[in-house]
Amino acid sequence: MISKNTVCLWFNKDAQEAAEFYASIFPDTAVTAVHRAPGDYPAGKEGEVLTVEFTVMGIPCLGLNGGDGFKHNEAFSFQVATEDQAETDRLWNAIVGNGGQASACGWCKDRWGISWQITPRVLSEAITDPDRAAAKRAFEAMMEMGKIDVAKIEAARRG
């Protein structure tokens, strides 16, 4: 059954490869269907993979092999709440270590250009702390990081 609301992600010709990669690293993620083009289209030929239905941590997605006309950017990202440093490291390293690119403040891009925010829950709690001084210290520590360091965020929050 098709979801009422689905995230559609534009790929050149590798939507299936991307969906299978996501399924290999994220929990509650799976490729659910692969559809081939019923005829030729501007970016491909009849019989080639046109769309891929998949979920990313339970979120329904559709990968569209639409060609190289559009590129991903940071205006869209998946934000992944991690429980600890080990999970943060595992996900960050999987994305960056497989052709991705590190960025700042917990952001990175996978090799297809999709942006991910690998965000430990500790960080979210720290920067929303009712103690504004503690929140500011944690925020300032985050601003100096690429991959988030949970211990440094906790230390900054404590002062």
Rank of each mutant, 00 (worst) to 15 (best):
M1F: 12
I2K: 12
I2V: 11
I2S: 15
S3M: 06
S3R: 06
K4F: 03
T6D: 05
L9C: 02
N12A: 14
K13T: 11
D14S: 14
Q16C: 07
E17T: 11
A18M: 02
A19T: 02
F21K: 03
S24A: 11
I25N: 03
D28W: 00
D28H: 04
T29G: 00
T29K: 00
T29E: 02
A30E: 07
V31Q: 03
V31N: 06
A33C: 04
A33K: 15
H35V: 07
H35I: 03
R36F: 09
R36K: 15
G39H: 13
D40N: 09
D40T: 03
P42G: 10
G44M: 09
G47I: 09
G47Y: 07
G47S: 07
G47F: 08
E48T: 12
V49S: 10
L50C: 01
V52G: 14
F54G: 00
T55G: 04
V56W: 01
G58L: 08
P60V: 08
L62H: 09
G66R: 07
G69V: 04
F70E: 05
N73H: 11
A75R: 08
F76S: 03
V80I: 12
A81R: 05
A81M: 10
Q85S: 15
E87W: 04
E87N: 01
T88C: 09
L91M: 01
A94L: 01
A94I: 05
A94P: 00
I95C: 05
G97R: 00
N98A: 01
G99K: 04
G100K: 06
G100N: 10
A102C: 06
S103F: 12
S103Q: 13
G106D: 01
G106F: 04
C108E: 11
K109V: 10
K109Y: 15
K109H: 14
D110K: 11
D110E: 11
G113P: 02
G113L: 04
G113V: 07
W116P: 03
W116D: 08
W116L: 05
Q117V: 05
Q117G: 05
I118D: 04
A126I: 06
A126K: 11
I127L: 06
I127C: 06
I127S: 06
D129A: 05
P130I: 00
P130H: 05
D131T: 09
A135C: 00
K136F: 08
R137D: 10
R137E: 13
A138M: 00
A141S: 13
E144V: 02
G146C: 03
K147H: 00
I148P: 00
D149K: 14
V150N: 12
A151K: 15
K152F: 06
K152N: 10
I153H: 14
E154T: 15
E154P: 12
A156P: 09
R157P: 13
